[in-house]
C-alpha cells in the first residue's frame, strides 16, 4: 500500500500509468455523453408540468454534481500533497480548480436558462443557485490565491489549506443557505427537488452523470500530464522523452 502511494507520487510513474488509463476514460466519456444526450433530448418523455424545458437537467444536474465533487477531490488532493508531500497530487489539484469553476459556471448558467421558462426570470435567489454561486466564489478564491504567490510551492500549499477550509465550510454554507431560503421564500417550485422521476427520465440522467465523471477523470489525467511535463521539463526523463519523440 505504502509502496503504491509513493510510486504513484513519482511523476514519471504517474505519467506512464495515466498514458494507459487515459484513452479508456475518454472513450467511456464520449460514448456515455453521446448516448445520454440523445436519450435525454430525444427519447425521454416530456415532463407533465414543465414540458420539454426540463431536459436541461441532463446538463444542469451532472454539472452541479461535478461542481461539488471536484471541490472535494481538490481538497483531498491538497491534503495528500500537504501530508505526504506528493507533488503529483498538487498538480492534479491545480488543474482541477479551473475545471471545477467551469462546471460551477455551467451549472449556474444552465440554472439561469432553465429559470426563464420556469420562473419567467433569469435569476432567482433559489437555495441551490445561491449555494452554487457561493461555490463559484470559493473556486475563484482558490485559483486567485494559488496565482498570487511568487513561489509555486507556497502557492500550492496556500491553495491546499484554503481548499480544505472551503470543504469544511461547504456543508455549513449549504445548510445555512437552505435554511435561509425556506425562511424567506415559502416553498414555491424548486427546480431540482421535483417529485420522483420515472425511470425513463432518470436513467438517461444517470448515464450523463457517469459520462461527466469519466470526462472529468480523463481531462484531469490529461491536464495533470501536461502539468508534469511543464514542471519537470528540466528533469532527465522528460528530456529523453522529447528526444525520442523528435
Amino acid at each position: 500500500m505504502w509502496a503504491f502511494i509513493h510510486k504513484l507520487g513519482s511523476p514519471k510513474w504517474f505519467y506512464a500509468l495515466s498514458a494507459r488509463l487515459q484513452p479508456w476514460f475518454w472513450a467511456l466519456a464520449a460514448v456515455l455523453i453521446v448516448i445520454g444526450t440523445l436519450w435525454g433530448l430525444a427519447f425521454a418523455p416530456a415532463d407533465y408540468q414543465q414540458g420539454n424545458s426540463f431536459r436541461i437537467i441532463y446538463i444542469h444536474v451532472p454539472a452541479a454534481f461535478l461542481a461539488q465533487s471536484v471541490f472535494v477531490s481538490m481538497a483531498v488532493a491538497g491534503l495528500v500533497f500537504m501530508v505526504w508531500k506528493i507533488k503529483v497530487a498538487d498538480m492534479a489539484a491545480a488543474v482541477m480548480a479551473p475545471f471545477g469553476a467551469a462546471m460551477t459556471f455551467v451549472a449556474l448558467f444552465s440554472g439561469a436558462v432553465w429559470g426563464v421558462p420556469t420562473w419567467g426570470t433569469w435569476w432567482m435567489w433559489d437555495a441551490r443557485l445561491t449555494s452554487m454561486l457561493i461555490l463559484l466564489f470559493l473556486y475563484l478564491g482558490v485559483i486567485a490565491l494559488r496565482g498570487s504567490f511568487a513561489s509555486r510551492h507556497s502557492g500550492a500549499r496556500a491553495a491546499s489549506v484554503l481548499a480544505m477550509v472551503g470543504v469544511i465550510n461547504i456543508p455549513v454554507i449549504k445548510y445555512s443557505v437552505d435554511w435561509w431560503y425556506t425562511l424567506h421564500q415559502p416553498a414555491t417550485f424548486s427546480v431540482t427537488s421535483s417529485p420522483a422521476m420515472p425511470v425513463s427520465m432518470w436513467l438517461p440522467l444517470l448515464v450523463m452523470v457517469v459520462g461527466f465523471y469519466s470526462f472529468f477523470i480523463a481531462l484531469t489525467l490529461m491536464r495533470t500530464r501536461n502539468e508534469i511535463l511543464r514542471r519537470e521539463s528540466n528533469k532527465r526523463w522528460v528530456k529523453e522523452l522529447f528526444q525520442e519523440a523528435q
Partner: peptide
C-alpha cells in the same frame, strides 16, 4: 484577495446573525 477568500466563508454567520 483577502476579501475574496474570506467573504464566502462569512455567509453562514451573516445568515444566522441577521436572522
Amino acid at each position: 484577495l483577502l476579501s475574496l477568500l474570506v467573504l464566502p466563508l462569512y455567509i453562514p454567520v451573516l445568515i444566522f446573525g441577521a436572522g
